[in-house]
Nucleic acid binder design. Sequence first.
DNA 1: TATTGTTATACTCTATAACTATA
DNA 2: TATAGTTATAGAGTATAACAATA
Lengths: 165, 165
Amino acid sequence: MTRDPAVVGTMSDDDHAPDHGNAQNFNMGILPSLVGFNLRRAQVAVFQDFATSLQSYRITPGQFGVMTIIQCNPGLNQTRLGEAMGVDRSTVVAVIDRLESRRLVRRAPSESDRRSYALHLSDEGTSLMTELNPIVRAHDRRMASRLSREETAALNRLLARLAAS
Amino acid sequence: MTRDPAVVGTMSDDDHAPDHGNAQNFNMGILPSLVGFNLRRAQVAVFQDFATSLQSYRITPGQFGVMTIIQCNPGLNQTRLGEAMGVDRSTVVAVIDRLESRRLVRRAPSESDRRSYALHLSDEGTSLMTELNPIVRAHDRRMASRLSREETAALNRLLARLAAS
DNA sequence: TATTGTTATACTCTATAACTATA
DNA sequence: TATAGTTATAGAGTATAACAATA
């Protein structure tokens, strides 16, 4: 047996890995060298802070995103919302179902195309967003406060290039 | 009415936002300025490439992470695996159930503590990981190829600092 | 008393395939 | 033919609360 499990996947040619801190006392193998893994860990941390910051509102990051897009593009239909969010039409159905059942979003009949709905925030949805926006901004500033302003800008640019598929 | 929906949440004091490209023709409001949002978009892109690269294996990024940690820390129990992954013990149960039902992971009785299991990869799991590792590395290099080597290193460092909660 | 794994329960997110109404 | 929304179905991930076995 030439294989020592504790060494499988250990850093070798990959010097661009953080390799410290994340999970104490565990050998994480190849993982810390993978952009996808670091992305996931960062996102988990950010999402948990988001959830804590907004726990009394029971709004997920995805729902906040959907409501923001509807607010900024009132009247758009579900298919285009899916495009904006990068998810399938069928996924949008359940998301809107949930928000509509909480009276935060309305499905209005489209005037130009009877197959589709025009999505709008309800009055409650609009005032909820007014309440939520400063909280979300504060949450994001708290997250970003671990980085300098320049680092935050650099991070957002790098992430955008990664996302530009 | 002083509120124009198309302007709600528009960039103002936040100059550290990418603001271009991501979703064509949609006003994304505050979203492009949020680290959490850019994180999510980047992760979606990376995960989709991961899924495409490994579609014939039906392995998710999370499952690959779990199998890597088990391979590098053979015999660890579910609670410590949960700590390493940053998820609850109850979440680990279902994850291991799935991998065990596919005969990739084994729950062996712990010799020191009869409450817990010692987790190991099966032989199939080990050889699957041998097959997967170069594919995952290639996938990650393809993702990171949108950035220079220095940028990738910087990104990983920034993400690690964000994740260090 | 505390910990490990489990179950029950619930919520969210995601996609594919097939269907309907409409374009 | 193509598109918008839907449903059925499936899989994955996540957590809380309570429980039995064990420490």
